[in-house]
């Protein structure tokens, strides 16, 4: 399982792995927003938490179909299914690798992009905290969606349609944490809810994803 995680990590970072694409997308998205809504700093700082969260969510979505599709095409998934590792562990390891190559860099670059959007000072720590807690949920929910659509030829669009509604609670609590943090309000409730969602998703969705994979492989 650890080997699988390390392999996916290596594949993600090596040439053609798509590492950095999500980051670049995130950057471009954040740069585009002021062009669309205007440059007033007060307005930007008000919508910054939402933009950063929605941006992170879309950047995450971008690379979801890679989680299983490549392994499905080259036959690795068949071999992993008959290997002496539980498929639930395989999905968890792959989702975790997706988070390390996609979600974690987003967390690290978000403060930098917060500067561009004039994010209020107290919000920075909450921004990093909420993204760090919330993005694993995005990867694991996404892995479930990817498992559902792995056998389909043009599954990418369908994947977005399936996964985005599932992202709603994570987005609401994540962005709410930052918004409250920016206004100096207590953030305990949304942060606890966000952490709860992440933990539950990480613990339970690999089972659903593995079930979907088994169905798709037969």
């Amino acid at each position: 399982m650890i080997r699988l995680f390390l392999r996916d990590l290596a594949l993600g970072v090596r040439a053609g792995g798509g590492f950095g694409l999500g980051l670049a997308f995130f950057l471009i998205l954040v740069v585009l927003v002021p062009f669309g809504v205007g440059p007033e700093p007060q307005f930007l700082s008000r919508i910054a938490p939402g933009i950063l969260w929605v941006g992170a969510l879309l950047a995450c979505l971008l690379s979801l179909d890679r989680i299983f599709q490549l392994d499905f095409e080259d036959g690795s998934l068949d071999l992993l299914a008959v290997a002496p590792v539980p498929l639930e562990g395989v999905t968890a390891a792959k989702a975790l690798a997706h988070w390390v190559t996609t979600g974690l860099p987003l967390v690290l670059i978000a403060p930098l992009l917060g500067v561009l959007l004039n994010l209020p000072g107290p919000a920075y720590s909450y921004m990093i905290l909420s993204l760090a807690i919330g993005t694993p949920a995005l990867s694991f929910i996404g892995a479930f969606g990817a498992a559902l659509t792995v056998g389909l030829k043009r599954g990418g669009l369908l994947l977005s349609l399936l996964v985005l509604p599932l992202y709603v609670p994570t987005l609401i609590f994540g962005a709410e944490t930052v918004r409250r943090g920016a206004e100096g309000l207590p953030v305990g409730t949304p942060l606890a809810m966000l952490a709860g969602i992440s933990l539950a998703v990480v613990a339970l969705l690999p089972f659903a994803a593995a079930a979907a994979l088994r169905i798709n492989l037969r």
Partner: peptide, 10 residues
């Protein structure tokens, strides 16, 4: 099977 389960970048 027909597919070898190899990773091109490894």
């Amino acid at each position: 099977a027909h597919a070898d389960g190899l990773k091109a970048q490894m």
